[in-house]
Amino acid sequence: MSETILYLIQQLINGLTIGSTYALIAIGYTMVYGIIGMINFAHGEVYMIGSYITFIVIAGLLGMGMVSLPLILFIALVISVLIASTYGWTIERVAYRPLRGTNRLIPLISAIGMSIFLQNYVVLSQGSRDIALPPMISGSWTFGDPNLFEVSFSYMQLFIWVATFITMLGLTLFISRSRMGRACRACSEDIGMTNLLGVDTNRVIAMTFIIGAALAAIAGLLLSLYYGVVNPFIGFMAGLKAFTAAVLGGIGSIPGAVLGGLILGVTEALTAAYFPSEYKDVVAFGLLILILLFRPSGLLGKPEVEKV
């Protein structure tokens, strides 16, 4: 294979890795929007908190002398999903439920307030500096001609792909097969009617926030293992990127969020690959503007029908 193709493969691997984690975070935005038609701007902070909990748990377990990597990762995953879900639930209880039925702008502002609160709360309790973990999953496969270009695909990247795939599969099964999933779909179609038919919509909405937060915590775990560094400010940019991914794919649509995340990740990697890398964000957000101009409902979104 020629150097150009090897290089392209490498950049696609990089892009798909970062794109899968965007997708995981984007699902949280898209589910909440799909059901109550609002953007949860505190979602990026839930991802940040998930990362922090992963760090604290892993550092604690390593400090206690635990050596089994799968066990450490499993415990970190369970604890961070549990705590982040609690945060997701609390955000709904504190910042959304009391404001349900008011003007749409009001919960939006309270979510932004929540986001600022959470960020500063973590700054105060954990400090504002970068915290680092030693690499947990190291090693990689390499292929290609070392004289031309050597493609490296790390075990960590594979781990991210597999973990994202399993999570997506689980979520799809949950939405399409379970009772709660059916209630979620019903709510997203017509929340008032669902309520009349005897479904506890408050519970469904709370569940949506919990699922979104759990996925954000999984993304937090994966990315904090991948980069090995967290600080209280990572939620903002990650949230913005995931939000872009959700809008790109069509906000309200779960397959759309996945597709949007992957497209965004690959676009960023390819931009950095063939243009100066400072244009990465320009292209990513430029893409958002183009989509909003020419296909406002996103790639897989349904055009909004005015309800009478």
Partner: peptide, 20 residues
């Protein structure tokens, strides 16, 4: 001669380019 974004976490694309 390139810039990166402060606060960014993912430099894999840049590093691949350095390697190339």
């Amino acid at each position: 001669f390139e810039g990166v974004t402060p606060g960014d976490k993912d430099f894999s694309a840049l590093i691949a380019k350095l390697k190339k």
